[in-house]
Amino acid sequence: METTVRVEADGAGVTTAHVAGELDIESVPEFNEAVRNCLNAPECRQIRVNLARLTFCDSSGLAALVALNYECGQHGVGLVIEQPHARVMRVIELTGLRDTFRIEP
C-alpha cells in the first residue's frame, strides 16, 4: 500500500503532518524526513501528526513516533497525535505507549 505524508503549516508555528497508508520499515524514512523538516523550522512550536488515514503501523513506525516525541521534547516543541485510526490506536495501547503521547481524538 502506498504511504503519503502531507505537511501543512498554519503560519502560527503549528505544523500538521497527515499520514495515510502504512507506517512501516519502508515508509519511515519518508515520514522522518517530513517531520524533521518541520522540527528544524525556527518558527515551529507544535507538530500535529494526523493518523486518521493510517491503517497500519509496525514496530519501526512506533519507534519513529517515539523518537519524534523525544526530539520534540529536546527542541521544546509540542507533539500531538491526532485522530489515530482504530487499528493504530490498538497497537499504541497494546504496546503500553498510550501515556507516552498526547493523543487527541
Rank of each mutant, 00 (worst) to 15 (best):
I92K: 09
N69T: 11
V35N: 03
L97S: 07
G21I: 07
C38Y: 09
E33M: 10
A41P: 04
A63V: 09
Q83G: 01
V35Y: 06
I47G: 03
A86I: 13
V49R: 06
V91C: 01
E43W: 01
N50G: 12
N50T: 14
D58P: 12
L65D: 04
I81M: 13
R102D: 13
R36H: 13
N40V: 07
P29R: 14
E30F: 00
E71L: 00
L62K: 14
R48N: 11
A64H: 13
T55A: 05
N32K: 15
L62E: 12
Y70D: 09
V35M: 01
E30T: 12
R53G: 02
H75E: 04
E93Y: 02
T55L: 02
R53D: 14
V88F: 03
T95M: 00
P84V: 07
R45C: 02
G21R: 11
L54I: 05
A20P: 07
F56Q: 05
P84Y: 06
P84K: 09
C38K: 11
R53H: 14
L23V: 08
L79C: 07
S59Y: 06
R36I: 11
G96D: 07
Q46W: 00
R87T: 13
I103W: 10
C72A: 04
V77M: 05
E93H: 12
R87F: 06
N40C: 08
R102F: 06
A63N: 15
